[in-house]
Design a protein around this nucleic acid. Sequence first.
DNA 1: CCAGAATGCGAGCGACCGCTCGTGTTTGTC
DNA 2: GACAAACACGAGCGGTCGCTCGCATTCTGG
Lengths: 222, 222
Amino acid sequence: MPDNQQKEQPRRRQARGERRVAQLLEAAATVFVTTGYTAASTNAIAREAGVSPGTLYQFFPNKEAIAIELGDRLMHEMRETYGEALAPIDPATPLEQAVGAAVDRFIAFNCDHPVFFALMHGPDVPGRIAEEHDVLHATLLGRIEGLLGSFLPDAPAADLTRTAQVCFGMYKAGLELVLAHEGAERDAYTREIKNVLIRYLEPLVGDRLGRTAGGSSSIHTP
Amino acid sequence: MPDNQQKEQPRRRQARGERRVAQLLEAAATVFVTTGYTAASTNAIAREAGVSPGTLYQFFPNKEAIAIELGDRLMHEMRETYGEALAPIDPATPLEQAVGAAVDRFIAFNCDHPVFFALMHGPDVPGRIAEEHDVLHATLLGRIEGLLGSFLPDAPAADLTRTAQVCFGMYKAGLELVLAHEGAERDAYTREIKNVLIRYLEPLVGDRLGRTAGGSSSIHTP
DNA sequence: CCAGAATGCGAGCGACCGCTCGTGTTTGTC
DNA sequence: GACAAACACGAGCGGTCGCTCGCATTCTGG
């Protein structure tokens, strides 16, 4: 295919158009969080935005593209948040602070953008979003795994992977609980999910200052 | 309404019919686990069962009824399993054994009936199934709460509820991880979810033999 | 000021889905 | 064997959904 220079030229857009796009994405976000992706109808999104179905398709080629654009914008903002949240691996940091800071940031992000949770954990998201989700998932798992590895340099890789997966799974479950509550209860649940993670990890990394990993630890289990 | 003796007489059924019902439910289970409830089409279920759409509607009034019947049968079998799993609250039992036994039973049940997970945790299940799910959810939470209460008689009710909710949430997340793996990995993840729960609960109930609940515990947090 | 692009509209197309109905076949009963 | 009830079929009805298309309106560059 010789003449495929650009899949499509991005079609010059006026200020009004940009406003419509933002308005449509916002409407899509509220519809997605209330009904989920599959059940959300494009007509409903257009109605929520106060425009006609035709107008919606002036800016998005199809329903999936709406979710993708929304996902991309969230992912972009997410990367800024989680870049600082897990990047600086300082082995001197106490476990409690490391876990606490990471959990706080991720929880805050998800509270600010509830549609992120809906798009990432919905069972019915389109392929492209699922891809992004998988990439993010893998990236985060890799970071956690690296962090654990720096605490436990001589643990088998399979155990590290599993422990990271457990941590992430517990965090996700905790996030769901946190999002289901508000105010003081929300804070209390945030506290609890930190406790879960800290107490789960403490026996593994708590004695990294010289002693060998102890018997009841699940890593190095006989 | 004076003459509403029975909402519907259960229509005398032949052996062939019973077989068809079982066959249809089995087909529905496989379709539900692979596509989820909403995306599953009745035509697809009929096709999976090797019958025509009309035949399906000979035995079920609508799509929801299929899921409900499936859910009822699972719930019935579930009650037998979980009745023994959480009923005998023996405060002398070590925490490790109590948690381990309960987790093992629930995990085994869900591995045997993967459609149970799909029906209970799908975001798009019909109202009646969601009701059953809520009832089961509340029942299990109540049991866990009661069990915790027997260990911590002087803890505030709100804290007990929250701790029970966290335990259940962590178990559900762990179940997802367990179902996503097989063989030895599956067993390893089962071990990990037990570790998570035990380590989370140990500081709360570990000193129930006389000493008061200690400072770092999340229950009784200042 | 005007040509053309960008924006906006909404009826409606095609596809699919849950479900029905008329018809034909099998099964139990006498 | 006769008769009714239960079972089985599959074309198709009504409805929704994603999306299109023809046309009107608004903006922008020359």
